[in-house]
């Protein structure tokens, strides 16, 4: 089943002086359950692509169709609800609310979705154990390592049972051991929950784990390779 359909997507940043063609006609589609990496040199448009697919930014041209909806046409207030229901995010940093404990961070989005307490509690416990942090559920982010924080972020992104998860360089701030650990957890959850993961990276070890590698350069897809 097709989760995301991207057709001839373009993005032009129109600053006062510069005009940057960040995306130059991208055609891509993602099936349910994919574990895909977006790679490319710095400035190639990875973040721009993920932001537009995630509904955080508007395209200049083309379409992004998710669940029969062209999200580029949604009003920003509708878009927030759309993100809440359909998309999980893991960022490079600042993923968690510092004043909330790990448990509260994971439950936060379910709270916004209006899920009942018992359901929130159960899902939170399942996910915290899946990311291997059952014993740290009451810690605040500042008491967790960078790797642990990213694992909580993954649990948080999955908590709302989104259609897919977008992760822009989730391992950029992590050492190699934490990187490997986080990727293993993401892979496991991808298989167990059949959640689609799309992540961007510069890291060769991360790329190695991906089952699909999309390379973009100057805002164009230059290769799209499916492994295994």
């Amino acid at each position: 089943m097709k989760v995301i359909d991207i057709k001839n997507l373009t993005k032009i940043y129109n600053d006062s002086e510069y005009k940057v063609n960040a995306l130059n006609g991208i055609d891509l589609s993602f099936e349910e359950g994919e574990f895909a990496a977006v790679v490319g040199p710095s400035g190639s448009g990875k973040t721009t692509l993920l932001n537009i697919v995630g509904g955080l930014d508007k395209p200049s041209g083309g379409e992004v169709i998710i669940d029969h909806t062209n999200i580029g046409k949604l009003k920003s207030s509708r878009l927030i609800d759309f993100r809440l229901k359909n998309i999980g995010f893991v960022f490079q940093a600042y993923n968690l609310i510092p004043v909330l404990t790990a448990r509260e961070n994971v439950e936060f989005i379910m709270h916004l979705q209006g899920k009942p307490k018992a359901e929130r509690e159960k899902r939170m416990k399942d996910l915290m154990s899946a990311v291997g942090l059952s014993d740290r559920i009451d810690s605040r982010p500042s008491k967790l390592s960078g790797g642990q924080q990213q694992r909580v972020a993954v649990a948080r992104a999955l908590a709302s049972k989104p259609k897919f998860i977008l992760a822009d360089e989730p391992t950029a701030n992590l050492d190699s051991k934490s990187t490997e650990n986080l990727l293993d957890i993401m892979e496991k959850l991808n298989k167990e929950e059949n959640t689609t993961f799309i992540f961007s990276t510069h890291d060769a070890r991360v790329v190695k784990k991906a089952r699909r590698v999309i390379t973009i350069e100057d805002g164009k897809v230059v290769s799209d390779e499916i492994r295994k």
Partner: peptide, 16 residues
């Protein structure tokens, strides 16, 4: 700013 951006990204609406 970053944290508020993240909150809006993950689905916290303007009213909230």
């Amino acid at each position: 700013v970053k944290e508020l951006g993240m909150l809006m990204a993950v689905g916290m609406n303007k009213i909230r």
